[in-house]
Write a protein that binds this DNA or RNA. Structure first.
Lengths: 192, 192, 192, 192
DNA sequence: TGCTAAGCGAGACGGTACGTCTTGTCTTCCG
DNA sequence: CGGAAGACAAGACGTACCGTCTCGCTTAGCA
């Protein structure tokens, strides 16, 4: 649909990259709370209007920057059993949530999603739902194998898994650890 | 230690109440994102300085207002078994999270706790830790009864319980429901 | 040095004019003491920052507004004699000091010059010194004509002339009148 | 009518003195522009209300403090001639205006008199008119002696004398000096 | 000796204005 | 026409003082 050349000067990829980079750096240096559009524009050497033209809010800049930096796909390769698949998924997740810069970014985006409803919808679609879909692949595979416990229901497994990860990130600020992974697997994919 | 009268004009309880009330009302009407200290002061008929003198941020006003409104103690009365105690606790929690005004308030406070580190510490101490302590009472009672499963460890039970509740509140915006309560109990306090 | 176009949006002449006008009107209506930058901005339909960007204080706004309104050059045209030149100068001055709005403005600026040292320097340079220079032209001309009394010295003539005008304005609030003009001329430029 | 003792606790002379002293010291240290009633009360160890009970503005405190400190009567003792009386008066005046603390105080009070009309009336009555009356004594004595020039009229002499002194104080910030005294006497009380 | 009345230090109150910061829009010139 | 620069209107921020109002406590004269 986009193959026909657009009229006028094309969007500057350099400005886009500079903006995303500046937003990530500034957020890391001064924190999301003190992040401003003016600051990002100044750091990036970019006009403010250029930012307003392409992103609806500073949270959207970070969402795109985060998506670009850490391509957030989690491995859903087949490890032979639901239990092994789940362990791999959880360990990848806790790797991710343990990276301090990334954890700070996710905290800020989840916070903004509560305050700005419209960004919340975009964040859910662009991040939260993708993560649930990744887990859904594992669960579907287990169901086909006949490997999946009757309870809890698939959606509730996701609520428990992601709930625990997010609660650790947002409320206790302790990262996910190996003990918690073991306990979750013991509960959700028992051996017997 | 404080019973000796302080010198100077005593704090006005009327102003305190008016501020808390105004903050709750305005947050409900226009949302936390558009809430301002100026607006609260105007609605309450109170000087801005009076607010700044007693609360460090608008989130702290809402924290105190929420604590005053819904005295957040959850029932930890003894229902005879860990399973019954846990069910009562979860049902009370999901009652609370289902109250739309209260859920919005908690979302906003959890969001602010991510953005403002110092408020985060106060929020954790005044709300999150109290909730964990309530659950700890139930778990201790179960341990004394010999009613408590070996795994998961008590702290992790709390992470799973509160994680699931908060994830539903923050990420899916669907309240806790009876199915989820059943599944959680099935996992954490199995019958056999 | 400035002829090359500046980058960015140029200063809005409309905002500048509106600010000067609003300041003069408000000062006339409510008096200098009750004049506020917020009020000027509101009346002018201008952002506060636009005012702070271009003027260091409300007194400077009025100084510029006054300079713009009554272009304060006094006639120094040659009337043939020191006596006639001096009379013309004094009569123009007392015309000016008799205009009630202008007298109020000058009173306020002289007052502010006492309280704010830095504005005092600007006021001296932009107004008081210019007036002394105008009188100096008359005195120089008289000296060339051989028309100038030996005493008092030129600088002291200025102190006496302007001192009397300002004292009437500030201390007695009676404007300069014809009698005082006659007496000053009789003293400073006697006939014999 | 007031000689009968008032009921209630009498005014504290200690608080009055502390207030006047604190006002003078603070004005000298930080300048009239940054002087505040709160600051005076704090420095004096006095309640704000105690100040508001007795003085209508900070300028009135300084007016009373100045009057107390330098009792401002100028010598009007008879020196035998108008010329000698005038010289004594001018020299006493320029002594006064040369004292830097006092000059700053007078500048501030004259400035405030322009901005606050009601204080202006009090300042005129308590200070400016008294000074004119002192000069009037000298002029009356000269008239009785037959020593007084026909022109300028007595009131205009005062305008010229005080005008010159104040102009030097307010506009040029150079104190009155011996040359100016000589020239003024030469003009207003010529020898022949 | 106790009562009444006003002044006292302290400090919170409702407000106003400050000067700064940020937002999102606009207006210019350059490439 | 996209982009950098930067001025613009709007308005919230947190601070400083304002002038007023309670407090509990003197400190006097009057009973």
């Amino acid at each position: 649909m986009n193959e026909g050349r657009m009229p006028g000067r094309p969007r500057s990829e350099a400005s886009r990259q500079a903006t995303l980079m500046a937003a990530l750096e500034l957020a890391a240096e001064i924190g999301y709370g003190r992040l401003t559009i003016e600051g990002i524009a100044a750091r990036a050497g970019v006009g403010k209007q250029t930012i307003y033209r392409w992103w609806p809010s500073k949270a959207d800049i970070l969402l795109e920057a985060g998506a670009a930096k850490a391509d957030l796909r989690v491995p859903v390769t087949d490890h032979g059993s639901y239990r092994a698949d789940l362990r791999a998924f959880l360990e990848a997740s806790y790797q991710m949530a343990s990276h301090p810069g990334l954890a700070d970014l996710l905290r800020a985006l989840m916070a903004e999603a509560q305050i700005d409803r419209e960004f919340g919808d975009r964040f859910r679609a662009a991040f939260l739902e993708r993560r649930r879909e990744a887990l859904a692949v594992i669960i579907d595979r287990a169901r086909e194998r006949g490997d999946l416990p009757a309870r809890p229901a698939p959606g509730i497994v996701a609520d428990i898994v992601f709930g625990t990860i997010w609660y650790r990130t947002l409320a206790t600020r302790r990262p996910l650890d190996a003990d918690l992974v073991d306990d979750l697997i013991g509960l959700l994919a028992p051996t017997s």
